[in-house]
Design a protein around this nucleic acid. Structure first.
Lengths: 125, 125
DNA sequence: CTAAAACCTGACGCTAGCGTCAGAGGCAAG
DNA sequence: CTTGCCTCTGACGCTAGCGTCAGGTTTTAG
């Protein structure tokens, strides 16, 4: 039988978050400034994060790569922070989904185009 | 039997290029500044383009969307302007191809991630 | 205790693909 | 000839996600 004793999670500092997520310390501070990642503060003022900040930062990176702005991500954060979502947020989720899908299609077209060129330049150098 | 009489192609001005390709006039001038699109000049100094400038500009847009810089595009232009390509250019083509493919994979992962969130927020609003 | 490493708050810099404004000339129509 | 649209050359502005330096405090290793 296992008992959960409200294990006081070990808090980590900004450097560990940055290394863990593969980004710069500056980037993590920037995310806070944009309202994406709220940190506790130690008595001396240092930022303290829970360990799930690391996958969260990775997720931000993924969304950035998908073309979302930090503002958009901030607006959508409630969708998986809490389970609560309103109609507007769900609509935004769908809209972003469509944007990403369209972007994938564009990239695939560009890839096909490049592949044609590669084929030509290979057989006909 | 058909005879090609070196038909003096009708040259078009910058506005027609821009409208035809769906970009701004400013963008077309920018492409020239970056060495992507060389235009003839009328006696009064106006830019004159051949009609294939329109698909060419569309192609630039596609490459920009795929994350290529104007410098890269300029370096790769010989690959389909002429049929001539050297080993370095073919390597660059392949490298860009891989970059785009990796980007597509990233986007697909982001899309899957978003779809999960959408599924959750739909069944559990 | 001390030196190194990590952290803090500003604040300016950078890139890339244009947008935009200023001021001046070109061109077909009426 | 003039009205109105198109084009020209600079040249500064903008956005977004950080990089980077300055100057100072804090934490950690030995």
């Amino acid at each position: 039988m296992t008992v959960t004793v409200a294990a006081a999670e070990r808090l980590i500092r900004i450097g560990e978050v940055a290394r863990g997520a593969g980004v710069s310390v500056r980037a993590v501070r920037y995310y806070e400034q944009q309202g994406l990642l709220i940190a506790e503060r130690s008595p001396s003022g240092q930022r303290l994060y829970r360990q799930d900040a690391i996958p969260l930062v990775r997720f931000f990176q993924q969304m950035f790569a998908a073309g979302l702005t930090s503002r958009r991500i901030a607006e959508l954060l409630p969708c998986w922070d809490s389970g609560h979502t309103d109609a507007e947020q769900r609509a935004m989720l769908r809209a972003e989904r469509e944007r990403i899908q369209a972007k994938i299609d564009d990239l695939q077209a560009a890839l096909d185009h490049l592949d044609e060129v590669i084929a030509v330049t290979d057989t006909h150098p």
